[in-house]
Nucleic acid binder design. Sequence first.
DNA 1: TTTTGTGAATCGATTCACAGCG
DNA 2: CGCTGTGAATCGATTCACAAAA
Lengths: 209, 209
Amino acid sequence: MALAKTIPGASPRMVERLSLYRRVLQQTSAAGSHSTYSHELAAACRVSAVQVRRDLMTVGYSGSTKSGYEIKPLLVAMDTFLGNTGPVDVALVGVGHLGRAVLAFLCWRHPRFVPVAFDRDTRLTERVLDGVHCLPVEQMADTIQEQQIRIAVVCVPATEAQRVSEQLVAAGVRGILNFAPVTLFLPSYVFIENIDISVALEKVAFFTG
Amino acid sequence: MALAKTIPGASPRMVERLSLYRRVLQQTSAAGSHSTYSHELAAACRVSAVQVRRDLMTVGYSGSTKSGYEIKPLLVAMDTFLGNTGPVDVALVGVGHLGRAVLAFLCWRHPRFVPVAFDRDTRLTERVLDGVHCLPVEQMADTIQEQQIRIAVVCVPATEAQRVSEQLVAAGVRGILNFAPVTLFLPSYVFIENIDISVALEKVAFFTG
DNA sequence: TTTTGTGAATCGATTCACAGCG
DNA sequence: CGCTGTGAATCGATTCACAAAA
């Protein structure tokens, strides 16, 4: 039971799956369940049961052969592994439709991430959107430095993305979720995750045949 | 020179890269270049030069050792490989902030995909958004059948996604780009691509450390 | 019998290393 | 030389197969 093995290996793919597992487990837990089996979790996430067991092994949580995994402590173990201890401030740049969609996502589903929004458009700034204050970009660098924000979401047009990202990194940001359809060139110590809607749709079109 | 080899293997990952290559090549071409080297394309997409050569090999286009790859015919070869012959109709369900962001993406950058939008909210329907007509959901099934639409983008809330997807599939859709943070359960002949914003941000948070 | 935990095998994707060419 | 094309090697992720437990 719970023999942590201080594993170094955590691939991006695995972190994605863990994130999925957690969401499902939270729902299962809210629905009143107390424990679950690897094959149940697997079915709910469309992965194999072995995969689930491997991942949970990496997390360092062990189940029992009788009732599978206890959901509550498993969630704790996953949070510990993923480093989800406290709330995390997130800078969100660009409050157009996409930016507001992301804001809504964060505020509704993810109380863990606390966004601070920035935009160039003065009609948007100094307003409260989805319960989040929106500040003018001029205050971006200072705010990020003061609040020690390390994570940012880039929702600005493609033409602005590189410049904005450089400003973010200069202010102290070390991880970026980029929605702009461009390759960002930033120091290697910055983690970049790209979400490219055009590419994703292209993929669907290809494999739909 | 361009000895097509009728390759079966095209992994999702590779299709993503090809899509990236094409975007870069279009820009390079528009900037006046006539040819490019694998290492240039590689640098612009943050992949290795060998990877680029392998991918282009799969596409079936050969370059020359002197001037690398000719951009124009390479783009043609890629389009042929990806099956990008004519315009493709796409059903977009849910025209909230996210839906409108996707619409804007498609209309601005991707004249190839022709969207038809649907929403439950009658204040949105019968209006033109980003140059696209928005119809009430009641007309969704009929429109999809009539226009033979095979691809859809799901931008509805998580609670609606499963039901809406089933309707889409029943109407003839065979590929779905899903933004809702839920696992869709659909027949195996339906290709599903999930974009999960929460999961992506979770990943950034983890690897930012 | 069902389920977890896991070494070993497999599968797939990427890189290495080098041949061929201009 | 530098560049493309590619067999072979490598690396990583997933699955197989089975031991242990209840």
